[in-house]
Design a protein around this nucleic acid. Structure first.
Length: 297
DNA sequence: ACTACGTCCTGCTTGC
DNA sequence: TGCAAGCAGGACGTAG
C-alpha cells in the first residue's frame, strides 16, 4: 500500500532513470488507469508521445513527471500501482497498463493489478498541477507548517485517525503510517482532535513525520510483491512496524496484545493499554436530549 | 459548510 | 473439491 515513503522511493527512482529521457512511444493498454484524463486513452498517448521528462516531483502520494512542453504526467499508485523501469526486452507484466518506450532501450511501465491508481496529463507541471491543488503539503515538505496543522486538527471533533487520513489536512499518510504515528504518540484514533492540547497535536505530527522518515530510510514498507521500487525491489520497513498488521502480538512497550478493529471498511491496529479509547466512545447517534458539545471556536 | 459512507477493482485467503 | 464470501484500501462523488 504505497503511502508517502513508498511514493518517494519511486519518485527518486524515476528521477534517476527517466529524467532527460524522451517518451518515444506511448501505449495505453487498458482504459481504466487513464479514466481521469479528460481526453481518454488516445489523447493521453498523443499528448505525451515525443515529450522529454525534465523533472519528477511529488506531493503526498501523488507524483508527476514534468514535461518539456510545460505539461506533466500526474500519477497516483492507488493500492497496487507500480512504476517500473525495465529493459524493452523484458516480458510484459501480467497487469501492465501503460507502456512508455524511452529513447534508451528501456521502458517505463505503469503496472497496476487493482487499478485504483491512474495517470493523467495535467496542464501545469512546473509547479503544482491544478488537479491536486486541494492536496495539503506533506510532513516531509520543508514548507509544511506543524503549528497550523495542530491548530486545524484541534478545531474539529473528528477523530485523530480520520484527520490523519484527510489529505486536505496533511497528505501522504495512509492506513499504515496513521496507525504507527498514533501508536508512537500513545493516542487512540477515535479521540477527537478538539480534545488534544497543542503540544499533543504537535507530538502527533512529529511522530508521523518520524515514522515516515524511518520508513523512507528502509526503502519503504512492503508486505508482498505489490509494492516495489522502479527496479522491482521491496522495502524492509515492515519489520519495524509496531501496530499495523500486528494483531495479537505483544505491544513493544507494554506487552499487551495489539488489537484490530474495523474502521471505515478497513482495519485499525492499536495497543488497548497504551492507547486508551476516549471516555465517550463515538456512537452513531448521540444520546437523546444531550446538548451538542461540538459548538465552540 | 462540513461530515460520512458507498463505490470502484482484482486476486489471494478463508470457510462452509 | 468447489464455490462464494471476505479482505486488502485511496480517493472521489454524493447523500445527509
Amino acid at each position: 500500500m504505497p503511502e508517502l515513503p513508498e511514493v518517494e522511493v519511486v519518485r527518486r527512482g524515476l528521477e534517476r532513470h527517466v529524467v532527460g529521457r524522451r517518451l518515444a512511444a506511448v501505449d495505453v493498454l487498458h482504459p481504466r488507469p487513464v479514466r481521469r484524463h479528460p481526453g481518454g486513452p488516445d489523447d493521453f498517448a498523443a499528448r505525451t508521445t515525443g515529450r522529454t521528462v525534465l523533472a519528477v516531483r511529488r506531493r503526498g502520494k501523488y507524483f508527476w513527471l514534468a514535461l518539456d512542453d510545460g505539461a506533466a504526467i500526474l500519477g497516483h499508485l492507488g493500492m497496487s500501482g507500480q512504476m517500473l523501469v525495465q529493459p524493452a526486452s523484458a516480458g510484459d507484466e501480467r497487469h501492465l497498463r501503460v507502456r512508455f518506450t524511452l529513447d534508451d532501450s528501456q521502458e517505463l511501465r505503469f503496472v497496476d493489478q487493482r487499478m485504483f491508481g491512474g495517470l493523467l496529463v495535467a496542464d501545469d507541471g512546473a509547479e503544482l498541477p491544478p488537479q491536486i491543488a486541494h492536496i495539503a503539503r506533506d510532513p516531509l515538505d520543508p514548507l509544511f507548517d506543524d503549528v497550523a496543522f495542530a491548530r486545524r486538527l484541534r478545531r474539529r471533533e473528528v477523530g485523530l485517525k480520520r484527520q490523519l487520513l484527510d489529505q486536505t489536512l496533511v497528505s501522504g499518510v495512509g492506513n499504515i503510517y496513521a496507525d504507527e504515528a498514533l501508536w508512537r504518540s500513545r493516542q487512540h484514533g477515535d479521540r477527537p482532535g478538539a480534545r488534544l492540547r497543542q503540544a499533543e497535536a504537535l507530538e502527533l505530527i512529529g511522530h508521523a513525520r518520524a515514522v515516515m522518515e524511518a520508513a523512507l530510510a528502509e526503502g519503504g514498507t512492503s508486505f508482498d510483491a505489490l509494492y516495489v521500487n522502479v527496479n522491482g525491489e521491496s522495502g524492509y520497513f515492515d519489520r519495524a512496524l509496531h501496530a499495523y498488521g500486528q494483531e495479537g502480538r505483544p505491544c513493544a512497550r507494554c506487552g499487551t496484545p495489539i488489537r484490530r478493529v474495523a474502521f471505515m471498511n478497513r482495519s485499525s491496529y492499536f495497543c488497548p493499554a497504551c492507547q486508551r479509547p476516549p471516555r465517550a466512545p463515538r456512537r452513531p447517534s448521540a444520546a437523546p436530549g444531550r446538548i451538542d458539545p461540538t459548538r465552540q471556536r
